[in-house]
């Protein structure tokens, strides 16, 4: 009997620790993604201001620097390379939501949707305003970590 009690005690504490770890790593990954999106915004603003590479060049050159975002960015580059129409709907279908909340995901999709669709001044304005929204979300994510 005592043996069963011990097993169930170990299972409960082990399970609890595992779930706690999972939850904590979920928050950490989410925080990392938000952090990378903010860095990506900064880099894109710089690139668009000075060198004006194409969106594909800009993202391809940076893929290695964004480990958490790499798969989403690769999917986005695929859309461009396949000459598909870039729209919110197309992006929602192609880009994985991952640990982002619905709000954060929509904001990220909006960021990808505006890329390349206007002149550099408007691009900078659009990216900056989305970045500011992500800064707030990142602050909340940090507190949740």
């Amino acid at each position: 009997m005592w043996f069963l009690k011990l097993i169930s005690f170990l299972a409960m504490t082990g399970g609890g620790a595992y779930l706690g770890h999972k939850k904590s790593s979920y928050y950490k990954i989410r925080e990392k993604i938000l952090n990378e999106i903010i860095r990506l915004c900064d880099i894109m603003i710089n690139d668009i201001t000075y060198f004006q590479p194409t969106v594909q060049e800009m993202l391809k050159n940076r893929l290695n620097n964004f480990s958490a975002l790499a798969s989403s960015l690769s999917n986005y580059i695929d859309l461009l390379e396949n000459n598909e129409v870039i729209s919110i709907e197309a992006l929602k279908n192609k880009i994985a939501k991952g640990p982002l909340t619905e709000d954060e995901f929509i904001l990220f999709i909006q960021l990808l949707d505006i890329l390349g669709k206007s002149d550099s001044h408007s691009q900078r304005g659009g990216i900056t305003s989305i970045k500011e929204a992500f800064l707030i979300k990142h602050q909340i994510a940090l507190e949740e970590c």
Binding site: Q52, I86, G116
Partner: peptide, 16 residues
């Protein structure tokens, strides 16, 4: 519009 967008490599700012 699609032709122009493609011609701009999906980067209108670069050809503005």
């Amino acid at each position: 519009e699609a032709i122009i967008y493609r011609a701009a490599d999906y980067s209108m700012y670069a050809v503005n």
